[in-house]
Amino acid sequence: MDGYFDRYAVVAVLLAIGIAVVAGGLFVNRLLRPDRPTPEKLTTYECGVDPVGDGWAQSQVRYYVFAYLYVVFAVDAVFLFPWATVFAAPGFGMTTLVEMFVFLGFIALGILYAWRKRVLAWT
């Protein structure tokens, strides 16, 4: 069982190197770059005029609908992966196939429902 987690440890090594390289680069950059801020430089961009308000814009609800849809479909798609790997193994015959068809039918129903509710239309 020892070797099993070693494979993941290698990913962790790469993660550590990645963070070290990026953060180290940004740190070195901090030492090298000039720093002469003026009030004009420190304003956020808004078409060249002085920005109005504090920059929190109200955004439309449709974005969070897509986030919900993503969660639903991504989780559903993840269920498909293990099924696809054991699908051809002995002992998983017709039942597995039919079950997954039913499952995919449910997913398809979900997207049809969203479609019917005009969530996917962008007007």
Partner: peptide, 24 residues
Amino acid sequence: RSPYAMLGGLRASAQVVSYEIAMG
């Protein structure tokens, strides 16, 4: 904390997550 960046971030993430499903 700027309207353009805010809207751009939301829009980009909605795009990326939408295409990720089809990719998976």
